[in-house]
Design a protein around this nucleic acid. Structure first.
Length: 474
RNA sequence: GCUCCCUUCGUCUAGCGGUUAGGACGUCGCCCUCUCACGGCGAAAACAGGAGUUCGAUUCUCCUAGGGAGCGCCA
């Protein structure tokens, strides 16, 4: 209520923006919006080996697609390396950190010993209180935090509650590597502090890091931001999310035809609930969202529910924006260019006209494109196998009769063609379905489509008569 | 192995000592109907197990089991 809220999303650019990262970004964004604050974006690129520009581009692209905008310029952590070293110098001077000259072999030995003795802390304090004059020549030291040996470190987490660690389980972590570059643990603390971050919201794989970082904050005399560690997302089978189990980049969801609004709605309900409400507009989400209401257990990713929500958002989207979204997604899907080549002013207008019937039946933009195929197809129409089965000799004759009846319709519309067909059915003692299905097959090449009279209207008199002629016989 | 976290229908969740344990997705049935959808109605479906605390535990405590995260000069 008092201080301005500043959250941050801090991905490391070693891969795409995966679904878990997207949710973390969403939660940070929602909380910042709710509190009238800011969400900052920081790229954690201190690992020069693994960070790539392609990953940075993918992350920014993913956030933009999800419409999760950040405030201010993107902060690149590596650019702050000098500042990180400066802080360590202060700690060295204050005696809250020290240089460690232990060799890789010595450290490996310590790790082994600790494991054998069932201890979590492995570093044995070798250089903690040692005289620097003992330093071996030619060894580049690391700098370690002089962490408290006894007592406990406590985090009051907004999601997890009070979490306590005995300090004898926590190590003297490395602040500065042998080459003088800062470690993640140090860089996060310094950057969060310098950027004025008030609320840290991240995956609960960082929960233990909160304790380590708390010790650094304490050593520096800085105040720890509010902490919220949100549970991870698991694959559909409960396993850790892997590339095989839905750990796709958000670009993959775009290519599967999901809408950003649907993905946001799905993600916000994963690990968080607000009574019985399932559908949240962006405004409602911001209004209702709160940190303590986030659940503590991991959630499984369920494509069926995402798809259901996506269908809801498609049905409620306006027709024009669906046409736009449909055209946009073509850039990201296989054979999208082929479909795009079929779209011109005429077919675009037909898509718009057909959209009310189309969107009622589509769960993704891909399904929308597929079911709009009858508008984009060239004659003679490809006929699906199931539709082919409908085209018996009898139905081909019927189609010829239907065509003749339709040819008399002058003022062509869904209403007039329907009236003509109902009259025909009545005269011949047929159910409407008996004439509708042959029409559908001849006009769309399929056994399912939007209402057949809407199809008639969208296609227009001439095209309909031609398509019917293609399938008719005497 | 050690440290920490988690455990309500198949899945996402509501519940915050007393409820016929609610909703949604999915599944199944019925209705609507020119197909498929949409929509409507209905059904099956859960408190991991065991001890406590309490007049009373899904709810509080502990233990067990199961799951997860971490244990780097990665982030």
């Amino acid at each position: 209520m008092t201080l301005p809220v500043v959250t941050r999303f801090a991905p490391s650019p070693t891969g795409f923006l995966h679904i878990g990262g997207a949710r973390t970004a969403l939660f940070n964004w929602l909380y910042a919006k709710k509190r009238g604050g800011k969400m900052l974006l920081r790229i954690e690129d201190t690992d020069r080996e693994r960070s790539t520009q392609a990953a940075i581009d993918a992350i920014l692209d993913g956030l933009k697609w999800l419409e999760l905008g950040w405030d201010g310029d993107v902060v690149y952590q590596y650019a702050n390396a000098a500042r990180h070293r400066e802080v360590v110098d202060e700690m060295l001077a204050a005696g809250t950190a020290y240089r460690c000259y232990a060799s890789a072999e010595e450290l490996a030995q310590m790790r082994e010993t600790a494991k054998a003795e069932g201890r979590t802390r492995f570093y044995n304090g070798l250089w903690r209180d040692r005289d620097p004059s003992d330093a071996p020549a030619g060894v580049k030291p690391t700098v370690r935090l002089k962490a408290p040996l006894t007592g406990e470190t406590v985090i009051e987490d907004q999601v997890q509650g009070r979490v306590v660690w005995q300090n004898d389980n926590l190590d003297d972590l490395v602040l500065l590597r042998g080459d003088g570059s800062p470690t993640y643990m140090l860089a996060v603390v310094v950057d969060d502090h310098d950027m004025g971050v008030t609320h840290v919201i991240r995956g609960d794989d960082h929960l233990i890091n909160a304790a380590r970082q708390k010790q650094i904050y304490d050593a520096l005399g800085w105040e720890l931001p509010s902490m919220s560690h949100i549970p991870l997302i698991h694959g559909p089978d409960g396993s850790k999310l892997s590339k095989r189990h839905g750990a796709l980049g958000v670009d993959a969801y775009r290519a599967m035809g999901y809408l950003p609004a649907a993905l946001r709605n799905y993600l916000v309900r994963l690990g968080w609930g607000h009574g019985d409400q399932e559908i949240f507009s962006t405004e409602e989400m911001i209004e209702a969202f709160d940190l303590p209401a986030i659940g503590r257990s991991a959630a499984r990713f369920d494509f069926a529910k995402l798809e259901n929500l996506n269908g809801h958002y498609i049905r409620h989207a306006d027709d024009q924006s669906l046409v736009t979204m449909l055209e946009d997604v073509l850039r990201y899907i296989p054979h999208g260019a082929d479909v795009a080549a079929k779209i011109n002013d005429t077919t675009r207008a037909q898509l718009l006209q057909a959209m009310p019937g189309l969107k009622e039946r589509a769960k993704t933009l891909l399904e929308l494109i597929d079911s709009a195929g009858f508008i984009l197809a060239d004659r003679p129409l490809p006929i699906e196998p199931k539709a082919q089965a409908v085209l018996t000799a009898d139905t081909r004759k019927l189609i010829a009769q239907l065509r003749a009846a339709l040819e008399t319709v002058t003022s062509w519309s869904a209403a007039t063609t329907e009236a003509a067909m109902r009259a025909f059915a009545e005269q011949h003692g047929l159910k409407l379905g008996a004439v509708a299905q042959p029409l559908r097959v001849a006009l769309t090449g399929r056994t399912t489509s939007p209402g057949i009279f809407d199809v008639l209207a969208v296609l227009g008199r001439q095209e309909c008569l031609s398509r019917l002629a293609d399938q008719a016989s005497e």
